[in-house]
Design a protein around this nucleic acid. Structure first.
Length: 829
DNA sequence: AGCACGCCGACT
DNA sequence: GTCGGCGTGCTC
């Protein structure tokens, strides 16, 4: 067969393609191109390939060659899915960098980058062979079960059957049944993206003429008055040339679809099916008038423009309410006017409808939005709109760095210090801010980093001239900075003026705000009711069965929750260890704050905003709306309340306990505390009213708190940068963390030690650990971390990475490392 | 990732 | 003995 194809097509080229598979494998694979696809293959198109015995995957073509592989016979690729590439050359080079920089596989990057509707994998389907009429008497118990199930449900997957039989290995059984001709096994690939179809109605052009229309009405009114109503409704709805959807017509005319169908059958109305977008329709409102820039803003804008002539990246340091967004808009306008695309990155949580609407009013249809709350179908549509150039601007969260831009001219990274730009969970563990800078490189686009509290790293880069720098020092429109008062919890405890978790100062301020119909936001960076339950008799603390953490008591569910793996159990009324009834809750979270506040301020309308109350798709937005519409007096929440909340009537902000922030055992603790406190404070009293911030703490003299009061970022920076230098941290040192995981704690210990030893051979005392992390077991995996810190300027990054890569590869091939997972985390947070 | 192959313990 | 779990290696 193959030989036939070869000789038959003698003289034509034999092509091979190298593809990325959407799997965590180290290398790319090569497939042979069937002759009839020679003209169609192109880099960036998707190919369906068989990988392994039967599985099929969507792979991305990254190279085309005439060179046949020497060591093996390449399989033919099965199909090409695209008329034109879905991934651009620029993206592929970006993917390549990411896999390289973050020490992960190209397939990991592909998985993160492509909306899953563009990645189809085959599924093994088990189907009953009906024509043979199974003789049930000859079947074993298990075969009987499978046949039974298949008679109810025509298709089953392999894992369905595993569940059905309650065992893991089912392939041998299925293989035997296949051989006995009882079942067939098929691999089916389904294209998952389907455009949404909508039926629109038009009036037959024969009735455009007024006379004919009049005749029609006369007939209809006599014989079918309801049909006449529908036609009337249609004419009304279409009067401005608007398209009329079938379902809207039905609704507006109050007629059933049967009546519309009758009109369609009579060819009075004509139905037309059209692909429509799932994405938000244009808001239709008039563009907001261009706000005039202040003198300071004009000067800074000019400076940024000017610096972009020499620098690729500029850091814009602007305190809250200084009008950074207005500068972004100006620069975006300019880039778009120059025919370029723009990427505007925001942390996921800040992408509220408020923010989206504001920009959409400004830029209309040219702006696309991309974030994790979109479903797959919606993501594909954004992808395609960027690819075909109909979006000039993308407003998006972390993952929008992966969109298929054509000629990106500007990237704005707002809130550049945000830790949520770093992805943890699946590889690639990338930082979207840093990735955006590389992306800028790929496209020759300028990058603007913006923040009220820049990361130490970015500020350092600006100070040392690697980045340009601009600063907005004044609040736009003369909004005053809030008054900040620090209250000692210890003192108020001593004087007994503290009620529950609320100092007298905070209570008074809250009451005053409420009496003036103003709003309050309370910040407590911990969800649930109490993070620890403790037996006062035997000191027992309920712990998670899968993780090394104490369980958090949640009053609303009456259960103990694990915040790491999601495990829940009923909250005991007596100690599970000794039977004592003296159980005590230690610490407190948002739930408890809300609870106790409702006792102290019974008339106040209190709402809680944390992961537990915002799980449903629109609940985050709903809470914001309620706050906006003043149906909430006090909002209690975790860090969520710090981001993107901008409401005129919030005049009091309370930080219930600053200590949990300040005590965090991490070299970034001070920086983060400052950012968090400054950010929360920035929410108070915008637009004309001076706000008040109350910070409750056991340590009122803490350096960072003083810096927040003084709004002295420079002082924070100076302190932090000298500590970073002294203790060998970024930006002077690069850090790569290795998370070593194993189900067996003993084996983990030895293997982590071994890996550290290997690393030390190469990097000496730049290797720290292995150490047990704060939480040393998650989801039944025991964890140790090894930290590698090396000088930024004297050790070549690429050489170090090469060494690490081969070391991990070698480590994984030793017999010693079985069952052990090593996850590198470059630039960890 | 998923699937096959091979080794080993717990049942008929 | 045999079934099924689990570790190991490979997939173009």
């Amino acid at each position: 067969m193959l030989e036939f194809a070869d000789t038959h097509n003698a003289g034509r080229k034999t092509l091979f393609v190298e593809v990325i598979l959407p799997l965590a494998i180290a290398k790319n694979y090569t497939y042979r191109v069937p002759f009839d696809m020679n003209d169609a293959v192109a880099i960036g198109k998707r190919a369906v390939v068989q990988f392994g015995k039967s599985k099929m995957y969507t792979a991305i073509i990254v190279a085309i060659t005439e060179q046949a592989p020497e060591k093996y016979e390449a399989k033919y690729l099965m199909d090409l899915l695209d008329d034109r590439p879905v991934v651009t050359a620029a993206q592929l080079s970006f993917w390549n960098w990411m896999a390289d920089y973050y020490l992960c596989h190209p397939g990991d990057v592909m998985n993160a980058a492509l909306p899953s509707a563009l990645k189809l994998a085959s599924e093994t389907k088990i189907i009953l062979n009906k024509e043979h009429g199974v003789d049930r008497a000859t079947l074993h118990d298990k075969e009987f079960l499978i046949v039974d199930a298949l008679e109810l449900q025509p298709e089953l997957t392999v894992s369905d059957i595993a569940k059905l039989l309650g065992q893991k290995t089912v392939m041998p059984i299925l293989k035997l049944m296949f051989e006995k001709n009882i079942i067939s096994i098929s691999e089916s690939v389904n294209e998952r993206y389907k455009p949404r179809r909508k039926t629109f109605i038009k009036l037959n052009s024969a009735y455009q003429d007024q006379e004919r229309l009049k005749e029609l009405f006369e007939i209809l009114e006599k014989r079918a008055p309801k049909q006449a109503d529908v036609v009337l409704a249609y004419i009304h709805m279409s009067r401005n040339g608007a398209r009329v959807a079938k379902n809207e017509l039905a609704e507006a005319s109050g007629a059933g679809t049967a009546i519309i169908k009758a009109l369609i059958d009579k060819e009075i109305l004509i139905a037309e099916e059209v692909n429509v977008s799932r994405l938000l329709e244009e808001s239709g409102e008039e563009p907001e008038l261009t706000a005039t820039l202040s003198e300071e803003q004009e000067a800074v804008l000019a400076s940024v423009r000017n610096q972009f002539n020499q620098k690729e990246v500029v850091l814009l340091h602007g305190i809250t309410s200084s009008g950074k967004t207005q500068l972004y808009i100006k620069l975006i306008e300019e880039a778009v006017a120059a025919g370029k695309q723009v990427l505007y990155l925001l942390p996921e949580i800040a992408l509220t409808t408020h923010v989206i609407e504001r920009l959409r009013r400004y830029f209309g249809e040219a702006i696309g939005v991309y974030h994790s709350r979109f479903n797959d179908q919606e993501r594909v549509e954004v992808w395609q709109n960027v690819l075909n150039g109909s979006y000039r601007i993308v407003l998006g969260a972390r993952s929008s760095v992966f969109l298929p831009f054509e000629n990106l001219g500007l990237i704005v990274v707002d809130e550049e210090h945000e830790t949520s730009y770093k992805q943890f969970d699946p590889a690639p563990r990338y930082n979207a801010r840093d990735a955006a800078i590389y992306l800028g490189n790929v496209y020759g686009a300028k990058v603007l980093l913006g923040s009220a509290t820049p990361s130490i790293e970015s500020y350092y880069n600006a100070k040392t001239g690697k980045y340009g720098f601009a600063e907005l020092k004044f609040r736009y429109g003369g909004v005053e900075l809030p008054q900040i008062e620090v209250v000692s919890i210890a003192e108020e405890t001593k004087s007994k003026t503290i009620q529950s978790h609320f100092t007298s100062v905070l209570m008074e301020d809250m009451q005053q705000a409420l009496s003036k119909k103003e709003q309050v936001i309370l910040f407590q960076n911990r969800r649930g009711y109490a993070p620890v339950m403790l037996c006062r008799t035997c000191a027992h603390t309920p712990k998670c069965v899968n993780c090394d953490v104490s369980l958090t008591y949640h009053k609303s569910s009456g259960m103990l929750h694990c915040h790491y793996c999601g495990y829940k159990e009923d909250s005991p009324s007596i100690c599970p260890a000794c039977g004592s009834a003296h159980l005590e809750y230690k610490g407190f979270g948002t739930e408890k704050v809300e609870d106790e506040l409702s006792i102290l301020l019974p008339e106040a309308r209190i709402m809680r905003m944390d992961m537990d109350t915002t799980r449903a798709k629109n609940s985050f937005q709903n809470i914001l709306n309620e706050l906006e519409e003043k149906r909430i007096d006090i909002l209690v929440g975790t860090q969520m309340v710090a981001k993107g909340l901008d409401f005129a009537d919030v005049t009091v902000i309370g930080i219930i306990s600053a200590d949990s922030l300040l005590k965090y055992p991490d070299f970034r603790a001070n920086e983060r505390s400052f950012q968090m406190l400054a950010q929360v404070s920035g929410r108070a009293g915008r637009r004309g009213k001076q706000g008040k911030v109350v910070i409750q703490t056991y340590d009122p003299g803490h350096r960072v708190i003083l810096q927040v009061i003084e709004n002295d970022y420079a002082d924070l920076y100076n302190n932090e940068i000298s500590e970073r230098k002294a203790f060998k941290y970024p930006p002077f040192y690069r850090m790569i963390q290795f998370d070593v995981k194993h189900k067996d704690p003993e084996k983990l210990f030895h293997q982590a030690e071994y890996l550290a030893l290997e690393l030390r051979k190469q990097f000496g005392d730049r290797v720290i650990g292995p150490e047990y992390p704060l939480v040393s077991r998650i989801r039944n995996y025991y964890i140790k971390t090894i930290m590698l810190k090396f000088e930024r300027d004297s050790i070549s990054l690429s050489k170090a990475k090469d060494a690490i890569r081969s070391m991990i590869l070698q480590f994984q091939t030793t017999k010693l490392s079985k069952g052990c997972i090593v996850q590198p985390d470059v630039d960890p947070y």
